[in-house]
């Protein structure tokens, strides 16, 4: 979802939309994309392309930062040393991904400070799944496996997009995410093949996360605004339903082999290849986007706390006459 699901719309920005682009430049731009060439930061691009990409990459970056919060809180409570080391490495990776993505978004003209400011003020969104709590260690297992798996489906598709700086960031991210997926799967398998208590724990976590997982890829194609232009410009490369179906195709069998129960009726229509499932309450999805999820407030509070408590460090770094930077070398 944070790759190409919903793109947060802001009324003021909409009005700024340039109605007419230079038709010659636009034709050249589109021909270039049709030939499979990538767009670099200093190439001409339509205003709408720049706007949508900025939003998409920025929201992806925010999702990495906020996504590290539910997992980060479990580092101190990991069940053993190996799991703890893996979780620390994963959380550090996620923060690194945010840095890569902010760098990619910056090439489009928005400063990192503006992006961070928009996150804190709630203007800019992040993936909905991170507004749900990680109640137990089994939630961490499910997040590490299935949320990261869903993210990989999305990112691997987006890595074939047209904007070169974003593609380069995504390639590196996918390489690291493969470890996240593996450690998450290992974690789930360990619990699912363990004692009854462990199995119950992971089963309950799966029940908690299944709805947010369905929501992850964004609203169904029938409800979402079709954007042929974004497809044509290779900003969006697959529809929400296509990505969701791809995720179900790969991971439902893997869940079933562990004999875990999926809390929804999931039926694949073999003719169309689409999965049919119970109503996942899309109203809830929109409510959570608007800020009314179980953890929205908490997530932003933690970010605000981190930013305001780190301010003195940034101020110290900005001092031009600084005599010593010893701790950093």
């Amino acid at each position: 979802m944070y790759g190409s699901g919903y793109i947060y719309e802001d009324e003021k920005e909409k009005k700024r939309k340039v109605g007419e682009e230079d038709p010659v430049l636009l034709a050249e731009f589109e021909a270039k994309i049709d030939r499979g060439e990538k767009i670099e930061a200093d190439d001409w691009m339509p205003f709408e392309y720049r706007r949508q990409l900025t939003r998409m990459i920025e929201q992806h970056a925010h999702s990495e930062i906020i996504g590290a919060l539910p997992e980060g809180t479990w580092i101190t409570r990991a069940p053993n040393f190996k799991r703890k080391l893996a979780l620390i490495a994963k959380v550090q990776d996620e923060i690194g991904h945010a840095q890569l993505l902010y760098s990619a978004a910056e090439t489009l003209g928005k400063t990192r400070e503006e992006m961070l400011s928009d996150l804190l003020s709630g203007k800019s969104k992040y993936s909905n799944v991170f507004n749900y709590p990680a109640n137990t260690w089994a939630d961490i297992a499910i997040i590490g496996w299935l949320i990261d798996a869903a993210a990989i489906v999305n990112q691997a598709i987006n890595a074939k997009g047209s904007y070169a700086p974003y593609c380069r960031a995504l390639e590196r991210i996918c390489y690291e995410e493969s470890f996240h997926l593996k450690q998450g799967h290992d974690n789930v398998v360990y619990l699912a093949t363990g004692t009854k208590k462990q199995r119950d724990m992971v089963q309950e976590a799966l029940i908690r996360w299944w709805k947010p997982l369905i929501h992850f890829f964004g609203p169904p194609d029938s409800d979402s605004v079709h954007s042929d232009k974004l497809m044509k410009w290779r900003v969006k490369l697959a529809s929400n339903d296509d990505m969701r179906n791809q995720f179900f195709d790969i991971y439902i069998p893997k869940i079933k082999e562990l004999e875990l129960e999926i809390p929804f009726n999931m039926n694949k229509d073999e003719k169309t290849g689409n999965w049919n499932f119970d109503d996942p309450d899309w109203d809830e999805f929109y409510r959570v986007i608007k800020g009314d999820g179980p953890c929205n407030k908490e997530r932003l509070q933690v970010r605000n706390w981190a930013v305001s408590h780190g301010e003195w460090v940034r101020n110290a770094l900005s001092k031009p006459n600084i005599k010593s930077t010893a701790p950093l070398v």
Binding site: S121, G122, Q301, E311
Partner: peptide
Amino acid sequence: LLNDEVYKLEK
């Protein structure tokens, strides 16, 4: 103790 105020980054 977290405060509710939104911290604004200076541009």
